[in-house]
Design a protein around this nucleic acid. Structure first.
Lengths: 333, 333
DNA sequence: ACTCCAAACCGAAACGTTTTAACGCAACCT
DNA sequence: AGGTTGCGTTAAAACGTTTCGGTTTGGAGT
């Protein structure tokens, strides 16, 4: 049944010692060409594949990384995950997926699994600002790179996108379009992203000579399309002339709610979202949005993590902050 | 730095043998209550976490499963993955994610990684109908459960949704709405799902006393919104009165294309998609669709896999086929 | 008081790999 | 010829856990 072929059998059959087989696997340059090809031949014949656990146990480090995201159902995180998976796979690393669903305990459980698995490193989009858990990981020798979250300390890597600038871009765009009565539809204030995008809006207002305190904020408990539609109902009584939503799911829901109520977009209300997910462009009144380099976010974060793992001495911690980009479509024209 | 605390240190500190510590970890009922609680206390004090690789090496099996999907960017697979991750996490299993992107070589590479990692089992949505790779896995003692794909042999588990029935439902619905000139917008014919949904359409036509050969099929190379919009352009020259798209991404793109060209939906053309992704309901003209129990699909598949792993003797292989469900919204009313 | 038994625990071997020091050997230099 | 060098290879130890046969212990049964 589980007739797993070990390095020893390969060695015996190739007439070399197990150590040599290990060498052709891990440092091929150390072994003479003739024996190397002979061993490789036998490996193919016997269908040998290295026992990762044995390797990890002895070598002291694995070829897996952990990825903990807040919501795998959100296209934003899906894109990030795609970037991570692609690069990891290219480098022969396995990605262990953890979905925290915004729950602290679930996140905790995932980190425990990562620790048991002795992952080489962890990529995490923290669901809150508590950094003690990450300290614990690091104290176990597990490297951590923050994703979509700025670094909390200089001795760690982080990859994020400037949310203040993004929020500012969105608001400035609406103001330049002549917005007088601006609404910001946000998600939970516990989320750093929502807070920072709001700050961007307030800065934009100030820069335009307006009073930031006049900003009307509608805070929703979730950040999906349904919440967006509910937000629309709240707005119908006192219609603004411009709305900025903290993400595209909210914006799409809001858009639908407004259109159903007979409100014309962008003629009566101009609208902009955030993330520029695929569906933003595909929506009937195409949605303006703030684009983030999501796939790149995941890829670069993985790159940093791998460098930290493979070159612990020369590795320089980096805090990379991408700049978002304004994408104007029909909903705000 | 990597001051990892081992089972031995726990044993020494608790005044027991390593074997006993292992027992409180794996079969707590075998050890006396007093010593058990003492050991557990020490475990907490020292912050011990089991070395998964050592455990796997010795025990001969791991607590990880591999999940290989075709496109992690598609909300359908994302939902499946969420179901898998949830249950696996509840059971203390880790999920290794592999994204094949529809490429055979990428899928191959993922399976190799799974094999190296000595995963307990694999959940896979095969990107084609070649079953030899899966044979190889099984011959290594790795259990395989097919997801969104019917079983090819009786001695394996599989979880799928009846695509023929789904296609038939969609077509019947359109025909009952008075459709005379029906178009099926499909993805690559290499995909089993597309073929079977088409077969369902043809059966529905036959059942309505129409000639299945009269079905107009537009085959697109991809199954995303952009492809849907291109399909719309093809249709504009000779407009049908009803369109069934092989998935919602196609349908949403098509919807946008039609509306932009001034075609009214559903008055001139009624439209239905497949998968019932979240965005189907949120779209401006909300999209009729065929709903599949995606999250359940992932969860049930995982359940079967775990049973196969944990109870290899009593396990009965099952081929579960869910039935899809018609969801009527504005686009086909 | 004695045997006997089960329960509780121990000790050591084993899992498959990596790594290190040691070794053989040929080629090169004095 | 003796000495040195360096390459290619080997043997054996080690990683942290699980498992299993064996040993101790406490108490029930006679």
């Amino acid at each position: 049944m589980a007739e797993t072929v070990s390095i020893k059998e390969v060695a015996a059959r190739a007439g070399v010692s197990p150590g040599t087989v290990s060498n052709v696997l891990n440092r091929p340059e150390k072994v003479a060409g003739s024996t190397r090809s002979r061993v490789e031949q036998v490996i193919r014949e016997l269908g040998f594949v290295r026992h990762g656990s044995a390797s990890t146990l002895r070598a002291g480090h694995s070829r897996t990384i952990g990825l903990s995201v807040i919501d795998i159902g959100n296209p934003f995180f899906t894109d990030v995950a795609a970037g991570v998976e692609d690069l990891a796979s290219e480098r022969g690393y396995a990605v262990i997926l953890g979905n925290s669903s915004g729950s602290r305990s679930k996140e905790e459980r995932n980190l425990l699994v990562f620790a048991e698995q002795r992952v080489r490193g962890v990529l995490i989009t923290p669901s809150d600002d508590d950094s003690r858990r990450l300290e614990r990981l690091r104290s176990r020798g597990i490297n951590v790179v923050l994703v979509d979250h700025p670094a909390e300390r200089p001795d760690q890597c982080a990859v994020s996108v400037n949310d203040v600038v993004g929020g500012s871009m969105a608001a400035t765009h609406l103001l330049e379009g002549g917005a007088e009565r601006l609404v910001y539809v946000a998600g939970p204030a516990a989320m750093r992203q929502c807070r920072e995008r709001r700050e961007g809006v307030e800065r934009a207002l100030a820069a335009a000579g307006r009073d930031p305190a006049e900003l009307r904020v509608v805070e929703m408990p979730a950040m999906n399309a349904k919440a967006g539609q509910q937000a629309a109902e709240q707005l119908l009584g006192d219609l603004p002339d411009a709305v900025f939503c903290a993400n595209d799911l909210l914006a799409l829901g809001l858009l639908r709610g407004l259109l159903q109520a007979g409100v014309r977009v962008p003629e009566q209300v101009s609208l902009i979202g955030y993330d520029d997910i695929d569906f933003a462009a595909a929506s009937t009144v195409s949605l303006s949005s703030i684009r983030q380099p999501t796939y790149q976010l995941g890829r670069v974060a993985t790159e940093l993590l791998m460098d930290e793992c493979d070159n612990p001495d020369t590795h320089a911690h980096q805090q990379i902050m991408f700049q978002p980009e304004l994408v104007v479509r029909e909903s705000s024209r």
